[in-house]
Amino acid sequence: MSETLTEPHVDHDDAHEHPSDWAYIKIALILAVFTGIEVLTYFESALPIFENTSVTIATLMFLMVVKFYLVATWFMHLRFDNKIFSQLFVGGLILATGVYVIALAAFEFWA
């Protein structure tokens, strides 16, 4: 939590240098392609490599993280905006991941 509490500074640099519409469309295209790959893993015959469950899970998790990151940084403007926003959001994400992964571990979920 405290990482959000940086020294106050008059920060005028969130001057909203929003990317162009074309940049947004490119991001959306990447997201679409990634989603396509994700769905492919469901059809095991599509790529023989997805018959291996660990490979499938690793691929899916990787693509999920990248998609999440792209939406948060581009569509939600985190990469252009004040750091405090990222810190609040990432703080919540890390806390949530931490407590729930540990709680599930106590149920031997990951075993």
């Binding site: 939590m1 405290s2 806390l95 540990i102």
Partner: peptide
């Protein structure tokens, strides 16, 4: 105080 706030999340069980 901040440390208590943080660590308070890791002791629930």
């Amino acid at each position: 105080g901040i440390a208590i706030g943080f660590m308070g999340w890791g002791v629930w069980a």
